Amino acid sequence: MKLNQKNIFLLDGIGAVFSSTSTGLILPQFFEWIGLSAMTLRLLGLIGFVFAVYSLTCFSLVKNPKPSMLLTIVFANFLYCVLVLSIALLSSELSTLGKAYFFGEVAIIAGLIFLETRVYRNSFGLRRKKLESL
């Protein structure tokens, strides 16, 4: 699949569905092993769910996404990473398993932010190169 200003939202939305499902529905069942309360995990899952709804709506309902739509999800993903890193670094109760999960999630989202930023630059402005290089 060639990434462009439309289908990057599909990639983001699918990732957010997986993230929100694992963080909000699966991990709360094992909160003792993670070291965070089930409520905190569900709240993180809810944030991911909101991101999924936004991205999948942009993909399915908007024919030509505007630059601000992509920047919105880039910024939201960045803030989510900051939140998760803050929890991972500041929570004394978070287990090694919990830290591994959240550092892994941040790494994946950081990679997605990189791709989204690249699509933004190629599609909307700073560099108008062909997207085949992605």
Rank of each mutant, 00 (worst) to 15 (best):
K2W: 07
K2A: 06
N4W: 11
Q5M: 09
Q5A: 14
K6Y: 13
K6E: 07
N7K: 10
I8Q: 03
F9I: 13
L11V: 14
L11W: 14
L11E: 05
D12S: 15
G13M: 00
G13P: 06
A16N: 13
F18E: 12
S19G: 15
S20H: 07
T21Q: 01
T21N: 02
S22E: 09
T23W: 01
T23G: 07
T23P: 00
G24I: 04
G24T: 05
I26T: 08
I26P: 10
L27S: 01
P28K: 00
P28T: 04
F30N: 00
F30M: 13
F30I: 02
F31H: 12
F31L: 00
E32A: 06
W33I: 06
W33F: 14
I34C: 01
L36W: 02
S37G: 07
S37E: 01
A38K: 09
M39R: 11
T40K: 13
T40A: 13
R42T: 08
R42M: 13
R42S: 06
R42E: 15
L44N: 07
G45S: 00
L46D: 03
I47D: 01
G48H: 12
V50I: 14
V53M: 13
V53K: 01
V53I: 15
Y54I: 08
S55W: 13
L56N: 06
L56P: 03
L56K: 03
L56I: 09
F59H: 11
F59D: 06
K63D: 10
K63A: 15
P65L: 03
P65R: 05
K66D: 11
K66M: 10
K66C: 05
P67L: 06
P67A: 09
S68H: 15
M69K: 12
M69C: 03
L70N: 04
L70D: 09
T72A: 08
T72Y: 11
I73W: 11
I73H: 06
I73P: 02
I73T: 14
V74N: 12
V74A: 09
F75P: 00
A76C: 10
A76V: 12
F78P: 05
F78V: 14
Y80A: 12
C81R: 03
C81F: 03
V82R: 01
L83Y: 05
L83M: 01
V84C: 00
S86G: 10
I87N: 02
I87C: 08
I87A: 00
A88D: 01
A88Q: 07
L89D: 04
L90I: 14
E93V: 06
L94F: 03
L94S: 05
S95V: 03
L97Q: 08
L97Y: 04
L97E: 06
G98W: 05
K99T: 08
Y101F: 13
F102G: 04
F102P: 00
G104T: 15
V106H: 01
A107K: 09
A107F: 09
I108R: 15
I108Y: 15
L112N: 03
I113T: 08
I113N: 02
I113Y: 03
L115M: 08
L115N: 10
L115Y: 10
E116C: 04
E116F: 03
V119Q: 01
V119H: 09
Y120K: 02
Y120S: 08
R121D: 12
R121A: 15
R121G: 05
N122C: 05
N122G: 03
S123F: 07
S123K: 10
G125E: 12
G125T: 08
L126D: 12
R128F: 10
K130V: 09
E132S: 07
E132L: 14
E132T: 05
S133T: 06
